[in-house]
Amino acid sequence: MTTQFELIRNPFGKLVLTTTEGVVHEGVSPVRAFPVQAPEDGISLLNNDGKEVAWIDRIADLPAAIGALVSEELSGREFMPEIARINSVTSYATPCTWSVKTDRGDTEFVLRGEEDIRRLTIDTLLITDIHGIHYLIRDLRELDKHSKKIIDRFL
């Protein structure tokens, strides 16, 4: 596979992108264009000034070594646990504490207000806690009856 750039990690752990023209960009950061709907498609590589220096249509289309670097960097920067079950809430009035089971383990967080639950699609929700951490419910239909009942009280 041919790419329009080379990507390596320097001794300081920063990604270094070199274009086919020989232009070197140190400390590039990958950013997903569609982190929920299409996390493996549409990745922008940004320089330190936040300007796009390269575009990746699909991680799977990259050479394996470059794809691994991009995926590794993304996973180190992103933290968005997926809620699998809502165990309990302290109150149906906000602010309240939610006890949830996620793909990263059990946790609790404080929901500041109902406006911190955003519907991304008909079945996908993004919940932001009081500290700005995002929790994803990828598919409401896959939640158990108890969890759905709690969500319905807030929507």
Rank of each mutant, 00 (worst) to 15 (best):
E73W: 01
D106K: 11
L136K: 03
A64Q: 11
K148W: 01
L111E: 14
D49N: 02
T19G: 12
L111R: 11
M80W: 14
A33D: 14
A33L: 08
K14D: 13
G105H: 03
I133K: 06
K149I: 03
H134S: 10
S88V: 01
G113N: 15
I43G: 12
A60F: 07
I150Q: 14
K51A: 00
S29G: 08
V16S: 09
Y92I: 00
A54L: 01
E78P: 04
D152C: 05
K145F: 07
G50F: 01
C96R: 00
R119W: 12
D152S: 10
L62T: 05
H146I: 00
L136Q: 14
V16H: 13
G132D: 10
T2W: 15
V53S: 04
S75R: 08
Y92F: 09
P81A: 03
E73Y: 03
G27W: 07
I137Y: 11
G76K: 14
D41A: 06
T19R: 02
A60S: 15
T128K: 07
Y92D: 01
H25I: 06
C96N: 02
E78R: 04
I117T: 02
K51C: 06
E73C: 11
F5L: 03
K148P: 05
R138D: 15
R32D: 14
E82V: 01
K14L: 11
I59C: 06
R118G: 03
L155W: 08
D144Q: 01
L140I: 13
H134D: 08
D152G: 01
E82M: 12
H131E: 13
T97N: 05
A54M: 02
K149L: 07
R112C: 13
K145Q: 06
I122T: 01
R9A: 12
E82R: 05
G67K: 12
N10C: 09
T97L: 04
H25D: 09
I151Y: 00
V31P: 13
L111C: 06
E40G: 13
N10E: 14
G67Q: 05
T3W: 14
G67F: 03
F12T: 13
A54N: 02
I86E: 04
R77V: 03
K14T: 15
T124D: 12
L69Q: 14
R77K: 08
T124P: 09
L69N: 05
N87S: 04
Q4T: 15
P63N: 15
F34G: 04
G105A: 10
D61W: 12
G13E: 07
I150W: 00
D49F: 02
L74R: 08
N10T: 15
N47M: 07
R9P: 10
V36Q: 05
N87K: 14
E52D: 10
Q37K: 12
L62V: 07
I130V: 08
S29A: 12
G13S: 00
D49H: 05
